[in-house]
Design a protein around this nucleic acid. Structure first.
Length: 301
DNA sequence: CAAACGTGGCG
DNA sequence: TCGCCAAGTTT
C-alpha cells in the first residue's frame, strides 16, 4: 500500500519528462519492443531509431524476418555494431515461429530460451510489452540505484542476482506501475543520472539521494580497463564485413585481402566470421554474407 | 567469470 | 587527441 517515495518520485518525473520514443507507443506490440531492446544493447538511442523503423517496415512480424536471409538481416543492421545481434535476432524470429506460432512469448523462461535474449532483454519484453511485474535491470538502473539508494558512485560491472532483488523491492505492487517504474529508472539513468556528468539539479530524487547526501564521492578502486579497438581482430572483422555488406553476392578473396595488411590476422578474422555464422565461402575463391544468394553454387555447364 | 564482440560521438 | 561510454549476451 505504501510505495517507496523514491519510486514514486521517479515515476512521476518520468510521466512528465520521458522521451517520445517510438517503441514506447501504447499498444505497439511485443515484436517492435523486442527488436528495439536488442538494437539498444550497447547502442545509443539516436543510432537505433532509423534502423528500428527500417526493420519494422520490412519485417513487421517475426515470420517475415524468419523468411528472409541472414545476409539481409546483416545488411539492414547497417552500422549499429555487434552485427551478430542481427543474425541472432533473425534466429530468434525463427524460434518464435517454430516454438510459439509466430507470437513473441510472454513467459520469462520462454523469452530467455530465445537466441540473443538474456536476463535484461527477457525482462524488458515481459514488463514493457506484456505489463508483467519483473525487475528490469540494465546499466542505467544499476547506476541509479547504486547512487541514490546505496550511496555508491557507480554500480558493479555486471548485473547480479542481488541487483535483481534490490530492484524488485523498489517496484510497486501493481504490475503496470511496476513496468512504468522500471522504464522510469532507466530513463533517469539515461538522461539525468548519467555516468559521467550527472545533472543532479534536474533530478527528482536529489533530496533523497544517498550519493548526493554523502557529498558525491568519486569512484575509488581500479577503473575498469577499456578495451582497445584499433588493431584488434574486432576491427578487422568489421572491415571485412563492411566489404561483404556493401557487395551483392560473392566477393573474391583478393578484394578482402585489401582491407588488412596482416595475412594471419585477416585470415583469423575471416574464419571467425564464418564460424560465427555471418559469412560463408563460395567455391574456392569467394566469400559472401551467409545466405546471400542461392544456397548452392550453380554448376557451370 | 573474464574476455570477446562494433561503432561513433562526446568531454 | 583519445579514453570513456551507449537499454548486454555468449562462451
Amino acid at each position: 500500500m505504501t510505495e517507496p517515495t523514491f519510486t514514486t518520485l521517479v515515476s512521476r518525473w518520468y510521466e512528465q519528462n520521458a522521451r517520445d520514443l517510438p517503441w514506447r507507443t501504447p499498444g505497439i506490440g511485443a515484436w517492435p519492443i523486442l527488436v528495439s531492446e536488442v538494437m539498444l544493447q550497447q547502442t545509443p538511442v539516436v543510432r537505433v531509431l532509423p534502423a528500428w523503423h527500417a526493420w519494422l517496415t520490412r519485417w513487421p512480424d517475426p515470420a517475415a524476418l524468419a523468411a528472409d536471409t541472414p545476409a539481409e538481416a546483416i545488411r539492414m543492421w547497417g552500422r549499429l555494431g555487434y552485427p551478430r545481434r542481427a543474425v541472432r535476432l533473425r534466429e530468434c524470429a525463427v524460434a518464435i515461429v517454430e516454438r510459439h506460432g509466430g507470437r513473441v512469448p510472454d513467459q520469462l523462461d520462454q523469452l530467455l530460451a530465445l537466441p540473443g535474449i538474456g536476463t535484461y532483454t527477457a525482462r524488458a519484453v515481459a514488463a514493457f510489452a506484456y505489463g508483467q511485474r519483473h525487475p528490469v535491470v540494465d546499466t542505467n538502473v544499476r547506476r541509479v540505484v547504486s547512487r541514490a539508494v546505496a550511496g555508491a558512485p557507480d554500480a558493479g560491472p555486471a548485473t547480479t542476482p542481488a541487483d535483481l532483488v534490490a530492484c524488485a523491492e523498489l517496484l510497486p505492487v501493481e504490475p503496470a506501475a511496476a513496468a512504468l517504474a522500471s522504464a522510469a529508472f532507466m530513463e533517469l539513468g539515461a538522461i539525468v543520472c548519467t555516468a559521467r556528468s550527472p545533472r543532479c539539479p534536474a533530478c527528482p530524487v536529489e533530496s533523497v539521494c544517498a550519493w548526493r547526501a554523502s557529498g558525491q564521492p568519486a569512484p575509488t578502486g581500479p577503473t575498469r580497463k577499456t578495451q582497445r579497438y584499433a588493431g584488434t581482430d574486432r576491427q578487422v572483422r568489421g572491415l571485412l564485413l563492411g566489404v561483404l555488406r556493401d557487395a551483392t553476392g560473392p566477393v573474391p578473396h583478393q578484394r578482402l585481402d585489401q582491407v588488412w595488411h596482416d595475412d594471419v590476422q585477416r585470415a583469423r578474422a575471416l574464419a571467425a566470421l564464418v564460424k560465427d555464422g555471418m559469412v560463408e565461402p563460395v567455391g574456392e575463391e569467394h566469400f559472401r554474407l551467409i545466405g546471400d544468394g542461392p544456397a548452392t553454387q550453380p554448376i557451370p555447364g
